[in-house]
Design a protein around this nucleic acid. Structure first.
Length: 276
DNA sequence: GTCTATGTTTGCGG
DNA sequence: TCCGCAAACATAGA
């Protein structure tokens, strides 16, 4: 269930697997609601014959640039995955969109829970306009972030999960970031000191960069867990400090990690390092 | 059968 | 206007 580091891993995999440059020769939509914003027939017709000219990431969206001025925005949501296969290979019942390339290989989108979305548009910026700053970009500056945090009066955890505030964090990395910054997830954002806001800014960047280096987090061994587009699992689960580590000792102080609910989301903290 | 799940959107009420 | 909360989407696994 991909957050920024997992989406970045998928984008890098797709590039390494030479998806850029491929021409789309056949499009199959097996679950209509995966395609958002137009009828599947229109989607298929518009995609057919186009060449993929680039693959990038914005927040948790995969941005696929196509010939003729079209862009495909793909959001993996909870269980979206990619796989490249030989033509006509045996798939499973959760593969909802299949692109066959002129060269022969097929790019298949598997999405067990069917929350993933493909948006074909001539104006991707309209869809991405509401997203907050890219946390690993140069526009994500400490002073601006601190001012923005303190201007809201929200609990820190839901604020970090708000994609219009900062783009790319999900439940795992929000918990890891708050642990690293030694901040309680229920702290009110307008009550942070400047040094605390600075620590939060730094923690966001450090945690995400490290997770990308580890190719993302794959928690369990089941099929719905994260895989790169090359089928490999991530390894950042070995580096998590709090997420799903209830009862395990805190890496800094040894106190047992606790699980609580914040904003309806499972939340993990060190009760010693992260005081309310 | 029960509970939980790494995401996002929408509508309601304070 | 801002914010928190519940539900919705749909399925699998413990």
């Amino acid at each position: 269930m991909p957050e920024l580091p997992e989406v970045e891993t998928v984008v890098r995999d797709l590039r390494a697997l030479k998806v850029v440059g491929q021409t789309i020769r056949r499009v199959e939509v097996r679950w209509e609601r995966t395609v958002a914003g137009m009828r599947p027939e229109a989607f298929i017709k518009r995609l057919h014959g186009r060449r993929i000219t680039g693959i990038a990431r914005r927040a948790k969206y995969i941005v696929v640039s196509l010939s003729g001025g079209w862009t495909l925005l793909i959001h993996l949501r909870m269980t979206g995955q990619f796989e490249l296969t030989a033509p006509g290979a045996q798939g499973d019942k959760h593969e909802h969109v299949v692109l066959r390339f002129a060269e022969g290989r097929e790019l298949r989108f598997r999405d067990t829970r069917k929350f993933g979305r493909w948006i074909l548009t001539r104006n991707p910026d309209a869809h991405l306009a509401r997203l907050g700053p890219e946390p690993l970009g140069s526009e994500f500056r400490a002073a601006e972030f601190a001012a923005a945090v303190r201007k809201h009066r929200r609990q820190l955890k839901p604020l970090l999960l708000d994609q219009t505030f900062v783009a790319g964090l999900g439940n795992i990395y929000a918990d890891e970031v708050l642990w690293k910054a030694r901040l309680h997830p229920r702290r009110r954002s307008d009550r942070l000191t400047l040094p605390e806001a600075g620590a939060l800014h730094r923690a966001i960047r450090d945690v995400l960069r490290r997770a990308i280096r580890n190719r993302g987090t794959s928690l369990g061994m089941t099929r719905t867990n994260f895989r790169g587009a090359d089928g490999r699992r991530g390894r950042h689960q070995l580096r998590l400090n709090v997420f799903q580590r209830t009862g395990a000792p805190c890496a800094r102080c040894g106190s047992p990690i606790r699980r609580l609910l914040v904003a309806q989301r499972s939340t993990h903290i060190c009760p010693q390092c992260q005081r309310p």
